[in-house]
Computed example of a mutant assay.
Amino acid sequence: MKIAFIGLGNMGGGMAANLVKAGHSVRAFDLSTPAREAAEAAGCAAFDSAKTACEGVDAVVSMLPNGAIVKAVYENEVIGHAPHTAVLIDCSTIDVATAREVADAAHAQGYKMVDAPVSGGIAAAAGGTLTFMVGGEVHAFDAAKPVLEAMGKAVIHAGAVGAGQTAKICNNMLLAITMIGTAEAMKMAQKLGLDPQKFYEISSQSSGYNWSLNAYTPMPGVGVESPADRDYQGGFATGLMLKDLRLAMEAAEGAGANTPLGAHAREIYEEFAEDNAALDFSGIIKTL
């Protein structure tokens, strides 16, 4: 397939490279010259605008920072410039309302479009092991699935347009809550004199089992290898977690959902992000 890829940052660069590895022809664009050069080195053809990258493609994939940019790119650079037969796939994490608005604009012009935010972080983007949560009509999901499968280990149809974004922000709200709880429990056990490794061995095989403990242990030298063992470098940046928590709280307010722990997690990460936005979100244990 011929695929346009818009947004070649830490996530998008690895994703575009995996499309090339899968045998697709990738037409890449990013505002950053170094990002375009890195994409070329990975086998993509780099273009100076999203409009030209979209010419004659079978699919458009985007990985962009926020909803305002997604809306501007699709309205001004993609819709009406990509062939109407192309499936449009936005992998950015944005607010549900904007995802639906952009998809409605695409549908009005005859395009198939899905929102397909990801879980897995930079390492999974590079390794092709992302999980995609996809919102859109069945026929649009079916068209997008082969493209997404080249970049991930799991492609899950969440429901109608916007359902992918809903799944992502709810999942990451839960992740933030469990990471804070895991960090609290590990530090409390340590201060009470229990060896952290012993606590890990016990809790990871009992009712305290959770992903933040078992697969992403926040204390260095304990449990599995994780960003904690690299001084919290790499992984999923605190600033990005805070972005997702803010999106979740905005959505909760709009839906009338009661999320007291989510709101408290946002407050905790807001304070931590003031000086640590670039650190992995598991670094929250440093505050305890």
Rank of each mutant, 00 (worst) to 15 (best):
K51H: 11
T33I: 06
Q205P: 00
T182V: 11
I202P: 03
S207E: 04
R246I: 09
N66E: 13
G128A: 14
M186D: 12
K191G: 15
G67V: 02
G193V: 06
M241H: 04
L194Q: 01
M15T: 08
A176D: 01
T182F: 02
D280W: 00
M188V: 10
V222N: 04
E271I: 14
V78Q: 04
D231G: 13
G14D: 08
G80N: 13
K2H: 09
V20S: 06
T33E: 12
Q233Y: 04
D115Y: 03
Y200C: 01
Q109F: 07
K153N: 11
P83C: 08
F29A: 11
G128V: 10
N276K: 10
E250A: 13
G56V: 01
E253I: 00
A183E: 08
G9E: 07
P34F: 02
A252L: 04
A263W: 05
A105I: 06
V114H: 03
E270K: 08
P83N: 12
G193Q: 11
V147A: 08
P65S: 06
V96P: 03
K145Q: 14
A277P: 01
N10S: 13
A41L: 08
M15A: 06
F141S: 02
N172F: 02
V114D: 02
A35L: 01
V134T: 07
D142W: 13
A68T: 13
N76W: 08
E184A: 08
G221S: 11
Q197W: 00
M186N: 11
E37V: 05
M1Y: 14
